[in-house]
Amino acid sequence: QTFSNAFAGFGDNDKEPIQIEAQELQVEDKTNSATFSGDVLVSQGETRMKTQKLRVFYDGKADGGVQQRIMRLEANGRVYISSKDQTATGDEASFDMTRKIMVMTGQQVVLSQGPNVVVGNKLTINLETGKADLEAPRSGRVKVLIQPNSLNGQGTGTGN
């Protein structure tokens, strides 16, 4: 397991404010959802996410506060997530905040850390532990490119 838990706590970190920029935001009380669209950029601390469309589902129970419990995020359209030295790109990504799991899918899901690149078409990251599983169910083969000396240069190399 060669990737640091850079993604640990993404979207669940309560300390730093989250900045979201987009062309449009539509909040629908009836479906308890808010849809950001048009070059959406979400940033929190060192984590960035770029996508064309981001739907946020919150549970309607909490009363009118702007940020109720967020249950699920769905991003689609050239999704790019970067955190510390890791980036992941794909077509869609969904974050299940209750189970703290992010699943990114797409023709080509590319997970890179520094010079190392792994390509598949389904990436599952446990947001709490940062454990990342990359699968390639469609093509059946995961391509991994690891630069020889890139690992030992890394203090936090192995995830927990």
């Binding site: 970190n13 309560d14 300390k15 404010p17 989250i18 900045q19 979201i20 920029e21 987009a22 062309q23 449009e24 935001l25 539509q26 909040v27 629908e28 009380d29 009836k30 950001f36 909490a62 009363d63 506060g65 702007v66 940020q67």
Partner: peptide, 26 residues
């Protein structure tokens, strides 16, 4: 009527997850 709020023409949003609502315990 159908409970839809639309912000358009470029939006910037800042969420302070830490700031709990008055009284509502996070």
């Amino acid at each position: 009527d159908n409970g839809v709020v639309r912000f358009t023409d470029g939006i910037k949003m800042t969420l302070r997850p830490g700031a709990t609502r008055m009284g509502a315990v996070d």
